[in-house]
Measured scan of single mutants.
Amino acid sequence: LVRYRTISKIPQITLNFVDLKGDPFLASPTSDREIIAPKIKERTHNVTEKVTQVLSLGADVLPEYKLQAPRIHRWTILHYSPFKAVWDWLILLLVIYTAVFTPYSAAFLLKETEEGPPATECGYACQPLAVVDLIVDIMFIVDILINFRTTYVNANEEVVSHPGRIAVHYFKGWFLIDMVAAIPFDLLIFGSGSEELIGLLKTARLLRLVRVARKLDRYSEYGAAVLFLLMCTFALIAHWLACIWYAIGNMEQPHMDSRIGWLHNLGDQIGKPYNSSGLGGPSIKDKYVTALYFTFSSLTSVGFGNVSPNTNSEKIFSICVMLIGSLMYASIFGNVSAIIQRLYSGTARYHTQMLRVREFIRFHQIPNPLRQRLEEYFQHAWSYTNGIDMNAVLKGFPECLQADICLHLNRSLLQHCKPFRGATKGCLRALAMKFKTTHAPPGDTLVHAGDLLTALYFISRGSIEILRGDVVVAILGKNDIFGEPLNLYARPGKSNGDVRALTYCDLHKIHR
Rank of each mutant, 00 (worst) to 15 (best):
V447R: 02
Q341G: 10
I260N: 07
D137G: 09
Q379D: 15
V212K: 03
Y293V: 01
F228T: 12
M328V: 09
Q68S: 07
L229W: 08
L413K: 01
A119M: 05
S161M: 08
P82G: 14
M179S: 12
L110F: 08
V95G: 01
G305H: 01
L263C: 01
A204G: 10
A330I: 03
H380Y: 15
L370W: 01
K425T: 15
D217R: 10
A182I: 06
S412Y: 11
K285M: 13
A338W: 09
E314A: 02
R214M: 03
L323A: 05
L229Y: 05
V302W: 01
V142I: 15
L428R: 10
F304T: 04
H73W: 04
W262N: 01
L401T: 03
W240S: 01
K202A: 01
L279Y: 14
E121C: 05
V321K: 01
P419I: 15
L145P: 01
E252Q: 07
T437D: 07
I324M: 07
R373M: 06
D88A: 01
R349M: 05
V212E: 03
A182Y: 01
L409C: 03
D217S: 05
S81G: 12
W174Y: 05
I177P: 08
T311C: 01
W382F: 04
I237L: 13
V131K: 01
E314S: 01
T352Y: 13
V302L: 01
G271A: 01
L201T: 05
K434E: 01
W262Q: 03
Q379A: 08
G123Q: 01
V226E: 14
Y288W: 01
V321A: 01
S258R: 14
E376K: 15
N335P: 13
Y65T: 07
A381G: 10
L236S: 01
L129H: 03
I361D: 01
C406H: 15
T437V: 11
C243W: 01
H162T: 10
V393L: 08
Y288Q: 01
G249M: 01
V336R: 02
E252D: 01
I183M: 04
I141K: 01
I72V: 12
I77N: 01
I324K: 01
G191F: 04
A106V: 09
L446N: 01
Y246V: 09
V336W: 03
H264A: 14
I260V: 10
M328N: 01
H264I: 01
C232P: 01
L78D: 05
S277V: 05
I284E: 04
G281W: 01
L200E: 02
I189L: 11
W75S: 04
P118I: 05
C417P: 03
K425W: 01
L343M: 04
C122A: 01
I189P: 13
D257N: 07
T102L: 07
I405H: 02
R429C: 06
A213T: 13
